[in-house]
Design a protein around this nucleic acid. Structure first.
Length: 862
RNA sequence: GCCCGAGUGGCGGAAUGGUAGACGCAGGGGAUUCAAAAUCCUCCGCCGUAAAAGGCGUGCGAGUUCGACUCUCGCCUCGGGCACCA
């Protein structure tokens, strides 16, 4: 048939030797082309995908865990008869490559491709069932060239535009910094105070899809509820009132200030108006008023993240401007510029109702503003507040300063009544707003996909022609000075305008790496096509049936991908069925590890790898390290563990089994080096058990056969259900039990034991495929276990004649009874009442109540 | 600060609202062995007892229920995300 005969004859070793066994089977799989994804219209397809890795340089346990889980699914589905697509690629653009080039010289491309080669070399020994022929890196010009074509189509479809947005600006290095490069408000390299600076930036119009992306979450039934919730909150649909205050003593052009509020029912509790430091009014005042200028400048030092903004002490500056309350011309409110108001949300201006918003309360307290209550708890009386009173909107409260709806009503009802009231009075309009902002994709960096447009003095911003794609990154660049080398490249920047042909300049910013990862799953269906996708291939392979990755991607990556799938449908690159590209999502927990830190001369943190540390001290210098509790393994914190050592010492199957056992896949797992040895011992035991069974002399069927077969069918049932529900730790627990049973099944015939061992091999194959092949071949299984169909449990073998039921007295377990499996409620109750424990507890009296849950439990209430 | 999770023996963890601790690791005791490795048997939440009986136990505090690790409310601790880390 094939190579199997040779393998059988070589298979006379006396010990489990993964180093010899694993490459042998990997070669056999390759020779058979087991993992090539075949477009086979006759068979149902299954597309399983793990989030592709960033080529940081070495694989870590998180990767091993992630890819092993995907591999279990891929191998299992293949055994179930599906045509499986299980590809792998590299999320290869990004800052670390550029940082490496700055620190160590060399080129980001060289660094990246070297890392890919190393990591691929580390992954290969794991024996993953990956269709390597489809591999690509996002920094391959073949990939990002297609991404540029996609970008042009999206631009033409009105999904891309430019506007101003703030960035972190390092005034010393004269460069834009990523949030993680800003440490305590200072540039990580220069140490200079970072400024917020406005630049014209490219944006994707994801907000066009706010409502759809939100509503479609309801249909994603095979996504974790927590992810859908996080996305719901992130998109953040709110119903509110938009209206304008008329101003007193405001500069020309600011006769009105538009505000948006989700609580118009609290309008009579207003005590101030606050605008963002980036609000046009603040900008206007800043020009002429040094106090405002100083305050606004102070605000701009906070940084660009929402987190920084929220954690900063809430401060404001009274502008001296007043607004009139829309219900009472004589009632004037002060206008503040406040550091916690976001220009990106609503209108960049709010009215503060301190009684019912904690931030407003803190603000009012600080600036001695009134705190009038609008409503009180139902049945309570108004009294001075020590903190904001913020009940859920669904709770009924009593309005003491209401103006629309009933005196007692829920917040929700009051909001609607207030909107209706204001609309009839012409005070404003009810509007629906979203928290989701458009996706800024410009990055002032080199190592990313160039944005394929040209700046022409005559024609303005002009899209590049598709026939001129790809716009490849120039290779002759240096990183010896800060800033983007594309900006100062002598020839790359100069080009002809695609419209008028006059000399023009190429756009020098590149795309956010989230763009790269927002459509790679579609590209895997036709990785070499000369268009972004191939219609027939996308039709067959899409959608991803099972997507697996870290919970840290719950919002951004997954939301952007959902948006991109819609944009790709709109531009004709994906079928309509693919606007939700991931049918099922599984978010695995992270592999965590302690972090070891020292500080350098300037007090900045320096991190150390676990292998550089022993007994809390650096091995090299003996310096004591600070141990930070376990956190997600990350290259920048250096709390990573190298799986290569484990694989070299114990083999891939040990590493695979180890990362799947014990911890449930969705939960974080703390890496400890103890345990790998124990896993190896277990696998060696299974190997030896198989060897022993294979050497048994043939005999006649025996008494123990039925028990063993029943155990085997229970194992099939248990493991199958566990894999179907992603409970790999439970599948492994079932395999342990079955192995123990088989090991003790000496009263069963050799034939039955061998049959059980073959089934054991099949059940183990998704997790430890090499060992499974070894056992399969020892037991004379036909062909490769990798290509054998999944075993089926016989339902008749799963039921037993009698069951044991626990007996509770008042909910506490006191004994048990054994009854026929088909016993009726009355019979069970009778048996329970004659149990010793029950007779003792009743002491001759009648039970108050007897609860019989068939097949489960009996509870006697006395 | 806001949004989302998680918390069970010495450790990883199991348990459709129905026997808390499956399965495994570590550990104790024993068998086998000249000895070791390997293997096998056995014990293993806490208090209590000669052994039983019994009591207490799923981060903390309330609640719903015949019955709560599981559901509700309020806390604590840890983790993820917060739009330029990927």
């Amino acid at each position: 048939m094939h190579a199997q005969g040779k393998i059988m004859t070589g298979d006379t070793q006396a010990r489990y030797q993964p180093q010899a066994v694993e490459p042998k089977w990997q070669n056999a799989w390759d020779a058979e082309g087991c993992f090539t994804a075949r477009h086979d219209p006759a068979r149902p397809k299954y597309y399983v995908l793990e989030m592709f890795p960033y080529p940081s340089g070495r694989i870590h346990m998180g990767h091993v865990r992630n890819y092993t889980m995907g591999d279990v699914v891929a191998r299992y589905k293949k055994a179930k008869g599906f045509s499986v697509l299980h590809p792998m690629g590299w999320d290869a653009f990004g800052m670390p490559a550029e940082n490496a080039a700055m620190q160590e010289g060399g080129h980001p491309a060289e660094w990246t491709y070297n890392n890919i080669a190393v990591m691929k070399g580390q992954m290969k020994p794991l024996g993953l069932s990956i269709a390597w022929s489809r591999e690509f890196a996002t920094c391959d010009v073949e990939y990002y060239g297609q991404q540029q074509a996609l970008f042009l189509d999206m631009l033409a479809a009105g999904l891309v535009y430019r506007k101003n947005a703030v960035v972190n600006w390092d005034p010393v290095d004269m460069t834009v910094l990523a949030n993680e490069q800003v440490i305590d408000g200072k540039g990580w390299r220069s140490g200079a105070e970072v400024e917020r600076r406005e630049l014209t930036q490219w944006f994707f119009k994801i907000s066009d899809y706010s409502a759809e992306l939100l509503d479609a979450l309801d249909g994603l039934n095979d996504w974790p509820e927590k992810v859908r919730l996080m996305q719901r909150n992130w998109i953040g649909r709110s119903r509110g009132l938009q209206f304008a205050f008329s101003t007193v003593d405001a500069p020309e052009g600011f006769e009105r200030i538009e505000v948006y509020t989700t609580r118009p029912d609290t309008l009579l509790g207003a005590s101030f108006v606050a605008v963002s430091p980036d609000h046009p009014l603040a900008r206007q005042l800043e020009r002429h008023d040094s106090a405002v200028a100083a305050f606004v400048a102070d605000c701009r030092r906070i940084g660009t993240t929402e987190e920084a903004l929220e954690k900063t002490e809430k401060k404001g500056l009274d502008t001296g401007i007043r607004v009139r309350h829309p219900f009472d011309n004589a009632w004037e409110l002060p206008v503040y510029i406040a550091n916690f108001i976001l220009m990106d949300y609503g209108t960049g201006a709010i009215f503060g109702c301190p009684a019912h918003d904690q931030r407003d309360f803190d603000f009012a307290t600080r600036y001695n503003l009134p705190i009038p209550a609008v409503f009180v708890a139902e049945g309570a009386e108004e009294q001075p507040l020590g903190e904001a009173f913020v009940p859920p909107k669904t709770e009924r409260v009593r309005y003491v300063r209401g103006f629309a709806g009933n005196e007692i009503q829920t917040g929700e009802d009051a909001v609607e009544a207030a909107v209706a009231f204001c609309e009839t009075r012409g005070v404003g309009q009810g509007v629906t707003k979203f928290r989701l902002r458009d996706w800024g994709l410009s990055r002032q960096r080199y190592w990313g996909c160039p944005i394929p447009v040209v700046h022409c003095d005559t024609c303005g911003v002009v899209p590049e022609k598709k026939e001129n794609l790809p716009i490849a990154l120039p290779m002759d660049v240096s990183f010896d000075q800060p800033g983007n080398p594309l900006d100062r490249h002598p020839t790359w920047r100069d080009c002809a305008c695609p419209k008028c042909g006059q000399p023009a300049r190429r756009e020098s910013v590149t795309m956010d790496t989230f763009v790269d990862s927002s459509w790679y799953f579609a590209r895997f269906t036709a990785p070499r096509a000369d268009t972004p996708t191939d219609a027939a291939e996308a039709e067959y392979w899409m959608n991803v049936d099972q997507y697996i990755g870290g919970i840290e991607h719950a919002i951004l990556h997954l939301l952007y991908s959902r948006f991109f799938a819609r944009a790709m449908h709109k531009t004709g690159h994906l079928p309509a069925k693919s606007i939700e590209p991931f049918n099922a999502l599984f978010t695995q927990g992270m592999v965590t590890h302690e972090i070891y830190m020292t500080r350098d001369g300037r007090g900045r943190p320096v991190y150390h790898l676990p292998e550089e540390v022993e007994d809390g001290k650096l091995i090299t210098t003996g310096e004591e390290v600070t141990i930070i509790p376990s956190a997600k393994m990350s290259k920048s914190k250096k709390n990573v563990v190298d799986p290569v050592n484990i694989i070299e010492r114990f083999g891939a199957d040990t590493a695979r089994w180890f990362v799947l056992s014990d911890s449930p896949p969705e939960r974080d797992v703390e890496w400890t080096s103890a345990g790998a040895e124990a896993t190896f011992k277990h696998l060696a035991r299974v190997w030896a058990l198989s060897r022993r069974i294979a050497d048994l002399p043939a005999d006649a069927p025996a008494d123990g056969d039925d028990d063993l077969m029943r155990a085997m069918h229970r194992a099939i049932d248990e493991v199958t259900r566990a894999i179907d529900s992603f409970a790999f730790n439970k599948a492994i627990a079932g395999l342990y039990s079955f192995t123990n049973t088989l090991n003790r099944a000496e009263s069963a015939s050799a034939g039955a034991q061998s049959r059980a061992a073959r089934t054991l091999a099949q059940l183990m194959a998704p997790m430890v495929p090499h060992l499974a092949e070894e056992i399969w071949s020892m037991q004379g299984g036909a062909g490769l276990v990798t290509q054998a169909p999944w075993p089926k449990a016989d339902p008749a073998m799963l039921v037993s004649d009698t069951i044991t039921l626990p007996i509770q007295i008042n909910g506490k377990r006191k004994g048990e009874i054994t009854v026929p499996a088909d016993a009726g409620k009355e019979a069970v109750e009778k048996a329970a009442l004659s149990a010793d424990a029950v007779i003792k507890a009743l002491g001759g009296t009648a039970p108050k109540k007897v609860i019989v849950v068939p097949g489960r439990i009996v509870n006697v209430v006395v």
